[in-house]
Design a protein around this nucleic acid. Structure first.
Lengths: 154, 154
DNA sequence: GCCAATTATTTCAAGCTTAAAGTTTTATAA
DNA sequence: TTATAAAACTTTAAGCTTGAAATAATTGGC
């Protein structure tokens, strides 16, 4: 996915765009992952899960997390397992439906996330420093529009 | 990385942009991965390595591959191992420097890649269908410019 | 109530990924 | 020379990721 187009033709510009998009996100992602590890001894997937939970104090179901984060169910199970063993989140069985469990940040988890998120936002600002806030808004809009065009089919 | 900003302020738009960028590439990547598996029984990392090699008939060193694909050395070792065992690439020890080995697509690998790449380009065209070729060009330019601003430091 | 289908989640096997440590070969320089 | 460092690569351990199979609980039709 990271190599160049192998042909010319109508889809060429879109293929170029896709390759750029992928290289950009991989490069930034790698940098953020490394910093999270070095500065906070955590990982991107753990950060993602905590970020998702931080917005929703009442908690989320495993399947909500999975859908929201765009990763598989089994994947979330493992990450939450590790976060639980680190005391950062809890899994609470529900009376209503005993198949499900509500996942919540603990007090400690919430504090830890807030601390990391503040620094993280600064990193993103730095790494995307070449884009003005104005440009960022435009780019965001374009990404939003193309996404809605096909996502969530079937 | 996939949740929303947790604060307002100067970096807010860049954070939004980063989240959009990441969600877009993850969504497309997931779709492509699934199709590669279903239609060609292969994986994205294998496809990436083959795409890199396809451009360079004389072959690449392991370290070239690693740098080009933005992944670690050890990672490439594993993927190339599997491609070798499938008969799609070869590792040729070099006389000049016996630490290195030249990795090349086999005849079979080259044919297989060409076949997959043609379909793959169509998929990308479809998935990015909401972006006109003109827009694609503009977006690509913007992504290129921000990338050059910080990548390749130290 | 009972059984089949559905839903929520976990488990599993295979593969991907990284960082760090180890191996082999080449280059440097006293 | 001949140690010493540097370079290219592999190995390893831990964790991430998926898709598929397994488990457990709920729902719906009869």
């Amino acid at each position: 996915m990271v190599a160049g187009p192998t042909s010319t033709g109508p889809g060429k510009e879109r293929l170029r765009l896709w390759i750029r998009l992928l290289r950009a996100s991989r490069t930034i992602e790698a940098e953020l992952r490394e910093r999270l590890k070095k500065e906070f001894d955590t990982t991107l997937p753990r950060f993602d899960v905590m970020a998702a939970l931080y917005r929703v104090p009442e908690g989320m179901l495993m399947s909500d997390l999975s859908r929201f984060l765009l990763v598989s169910n089994g994947n979330v199970t493992g990450i939450v397992d590790r976060l639980v063993s680190e005391g950062l989140v809890t899994r609470a069985r529900r009376n209503g439906d005993r198949r499900t469990s509500m996942v919540r940040l603990t007090e400690e988890g919430s504090k830890a996330f807030a601390r990391i998120a503040a620094v993280h936002e600064g990193w993103v600002g730095e790494l995307l420093g070449g884009v003005s806030e104005e440009e960022a808004k435009r780019l965001t809009g374009m990404l939003k529009s193309f996404r809605s065009n096909w996502e969530g089919r079937e």
